[in-house]
Amino acid sequence: MKQATISSRLIHSPEFRLAIIALAVFVLMSVLSPDRFLSSQNLTSMAFQFPEFAILALAVMLTMMTGGIDLSVVGVANLSAVVAATILTQYAGPDMSVGVAMKWYLIAFAAALLVGALAGLANGALVAYFGLPPILATLGSGLVFTGLAIAMTGGSAVMGFPDIVAWLGNGKLIGVPVPLIVFVLLAIGLHILLTKTGFGLRVTMYGANPLAAMFAAINVTALILRVYVIAGMFSSVAGMIIMSRANSAKADYGSSYLLLAVLISVLGGVNPYGGYGRAIGIVLAVLSMQFLSSGLNMLQISNFARELIWGGLLIFVLLINTIDWASLGQGRKNSNKSG
């Protein structure tokens, strides 16, 4: 009995559905273009491509679990990268010894994380202290962060880094792309945070009912602040990877990533109204997206078609989830019974 409910819960979970979609896309692409899609070259290049927006998706997901959203992730990523890049170009040139460059790189990285944390703190304060709806708070702050990056750079790219900057985005560790390792570590970290810690359970409960969380003596303000600070710092990491891969920092890099990050979160089964979300869902959603877009690349389909297919996939998944809940099977029976 108990066993049955667990397995039926598994089958009905959005993650299970997503795993099937990811698998289906993978198989489809492998069949359509077996030589190229399954080539190690393609698989590696995929592993380099997705971590930057996948990490942003993790940030968005965490805020979405509280019933909020972070529309400023790209702004934070770019601002962090611009700050780090400014430090690097100011104090470390391309022709510096590795040791010294390393020192400055770590300082720049720390500065980027600090920027992310501060930006997150600002978002959290706007939501928790001033009572702004998260959409508006992060819409406005996102403009401010991007704007600060523009004001700092005059809108042009900052470049001319020491070589070690390239490692984070382009390097390999025991044959595995470094950005992939970073993403996996962050995803595992977020999974542990959400499922094993008091913080994670509080986030889930707050997302389910913010008012009840307050009445249950949860420190709501501190919780929200921490959520947005973590989201901000995740965004900084993504910013550093973007900077490394582009070998430069600019205020308007990755402008399509916001859509992508929100899309992946929803695709990953996170409830946009809060209270439900799993890191594994994000991983599966990212994989489906990447398989799809890279497969489409193989098939010589234009970049614009990718946008079309991403959007279509998002709506498709939304439709599947909604139809399943509202009008089929148990949903209807339950709603009748409550009468």
């Binding site: 859509l259 946009p272 614009f304 079309l308 709506i315 939304l318 439709l319 909604t322 509202a326």
Partner: peptide, 23 residues
């Protein structure tokens, strides 16, 4: 008709419409 959340639907159709146009 389907009662999907508006922000996310329109984010999706934003890229669908534009992707369709450009492709």
């Amino acid at each position: 008709l389907f009662g999907l959340p508006t922000l996310i639907v329109t984010l999706g159709t934003l890229s669908v419409f534009r992707g369709f146009l450009l492709t």
